[in-house]
């Protein structure tokens, strides 16, 4: 089965190196250090030395892998995040209930479709957030993405129509503070 390969998605985490890598390390290093302190719970010279070594090692590995960050999270984004996450938790629960009902129904009513939903004009990071939100909302699953579309597998055609209405996209836009 041959099908055209979509262009690899631009995720905001690019492989350019340079300043982006520095930016990534500046965000990641304090997080890694906090993670270490939280889990070890010891502040004595030996453990702190091990911690410093592992943080440096992780940063070196990130640099070697060529990971970098386009732009760091802004304060506004952090403030808008809880509302989006609450909505996401609700969607995941609704989704789980939907799937559970399908699983236990004696004759599951499945009519899968594959469709493309437009995602034109979204920033790379937003597109990734949108694709993940599609996966977590009921009945739909993102398969592939390029600059203008996201390919979606849905358990029934109602799921695709739901996306077409832009209910999910609105939440993603709200996270980005754009309506």
């Amino acid at each position: 089965m041959t099908r055209p390969r979509l262009a690899p998605p631009d995720t905001g985490v690019t492989r350019s190196g340079g300043t982006g890598t520095i930016r990534l390390i500046r965000w990641a290093a304090p997080l890694l250090a906090a993670f270490w302190l939280l889990l070890s719970g010891h502040i004595d010279p030996l453990f702190v030395t091990f911690g410093v070594i592992s943080v440096v090692l992780a940063c070196v590995l990130a640099h070697r892998a060529g990971l970098s960050l386009e732009k760091g999270p802004t304060l506004g984004l952090v403030l808008r995040l809880p509302r989006y996450l609450l909505w996401l938790v609700k969607e995941v629960l609704v989704s789980a209930v939907t799937v559970t009902r399908q699983v236990w129904s004696p004759r599951p009513n499945l009519d899968p479709v594959v469709a493309c939903t437009p995602s034109r004009g979204l920033s790379p990071l937003t597109q990734v957030v949108y694709a993940n939100s599609i996966t977590l909302t009921p009945g739909t699953l993102s398969l592939d993405l390029d600059d203008e579309h996201i390919e979606v597998h849905a358990l029934d055609s109602a799921g695709v129509e739901d996306l077409g209405d832009g209910r999910v996209l609105r939440q993603v836009h709200r996270l980005e503070a754009r309506r």
């Binding site: 629960l93 789980a96 799937v99 559970t100 977590l136 699953l141």
Partner: peptide
């Protein structure tokens, strides 16, 4: 993958 992906996270 629909069945497991979602129920995994939620469960």
């Amino acid at each position: 993958i629909h069945a497991t992906g979602i129920t995994d996270s939620a469960g």
